Simulated scan of single mutants.
Amino acid sequence: MANERILVIEDEEAIRELVVLALESAGYHTVMSAANGEDGLKLAQVHLPDLVILDLMLPGIDGLDVCRQLKNNELTKAIPVIILSAKSDESDVVLGLELGAADYVTKPFSRKILVARVRAQLRQLSEQEDSSEKRHNGLVINDELHSAKLNGENLELTYSEFAIMKLFAAHPGRVFTRNQIINRVKGDGYPVTERAIDVQIVNLRRKLGEWGANIDTVRGVGYRLKSGI
């Protein structure tokens, strides 16, 4: 839980602080916040949080447009969004969900319910990551057997290379920064440099041969496995 990053986009200071405090009290140590849509979008693109909590009635760019932009951006489209809004009409809820939001919580809200919804979304991501077998266009990653095969042939991967490939395969299309890869693979605070991740990606691509082209470098951000393969 401590490694997960959450971004709160809410213009009302009292509510923003309440949400941040509720999340921190629940054990989420990296909680960022923004008071408007423009700043929220910038933070999302730079820090690539694991989850976004989004108000709809924001100054400038409204929440629906923020959600739309997040879901139309290759860097951020895989990030789950929980809408937190006083707009409780069925049409507002439906529109938010149709734009790609994962959940919709109406104000006034219960701190416990909001935290439970956050945990549910993050648990779903974790379960996708932890599922025993993942398949992508001839690549098979089996966590239970700790095996990796490409077109039926065994791949000789190191522990770290296997963990990176498992992470990518669980979240195709999602961009991970080098620091996020270190935290997910080694744990928070592990003494590994970001340059070491670059070296491991090079080694992975070499071992994967032509298939290695499916691991994208997102310049200035990190790496991802292409979606739709």
Rank of each mutant, 00 (worst) to 15 (best):
I61D: 02
S132T: 13
L155E: 00
E144G: 10
P191F: 07
I201N: 00
L125V: 14
Q200G: 05
T177E: 00
E24K: 11
G63S: 02
H146P: 09
S227N: 09
S147M: 11
Y223Q: 07
G228P: 01
R174T: 06
P59G: 03
E210A: 12
T193H: 04
S25R: 15
K166A: 08
L204V: 08
V175A: 01
I181P: 00
Q180E: 01
V118L: 05
S126R: 14
I79G: 00
L167A: 00
L23D: 03
E210P: 13
V46Y: 04
A101R: 12
V93T: 12
V81Q: 05
T30K: 13
R5P: 04
V218A: 06
N3H: 15
S132I: 14
I164R: 04
D216Q: 14
A163L: 12
I83N: 05
N179S: 12
L150F: 01
G100A: 05
I9V: 13
L157P: 00
Q45Y: 08
A101I: 14
D39T: 12
H146R: 14
I61V: 12
I201Q: 00
E210K: 14
E127Y: 12
L48G: 00
I61S: 02
D188R: 13
V52Q: 05
A14G: 07
D50W: 00
A2Q: 15
L204I: 09
D216E: 15
E153V: 15
Q124V: 15
K207M: 03
A101D: 10
R16K: 12
I15L: 10
N142A: 09
E24L: 05
A116G: 03
V52K: 02
V93I: 15
I164Y: 05
N137S: 14
G189N: 06
K186E: 14
K134H: 12
T177S: 03
I181W: 03
E17W: 07
A163R: 14
I79S: 00
A116W: 07
S33I: 15
Y190C: 10
R16V: 07
Q45I: 11
H171E: 11
L125G: 08
L70C: 08
G27E: 05
G187K: 10
H171P: 06
R224G: 01
D92E: 13
L58M: 03
L99Y: 07
R224A: 07
K166V: 07
A116K: 11
L84M: 05
N179L: 13
R123W: 11
V221E: 02
E129Y: 12
S85T: 11
V31Q: 02
E194S: 08
F109Q: 11
V46D: 04
G220H: 05
V118I: 04
L18N: 08
V105N: 04
N137G: 10
L84R: 06
E133K: 11
L157R: 00
Y104M: 04
W211I: 10
Y223P: 02
E38F: 11
E210G: 07
Q69P: 07
S88Y: 10
M165A: 01
Q200H: 10
F109W: 08
L139M: 08
S85L: 02
V221D: 02
G37V: 15
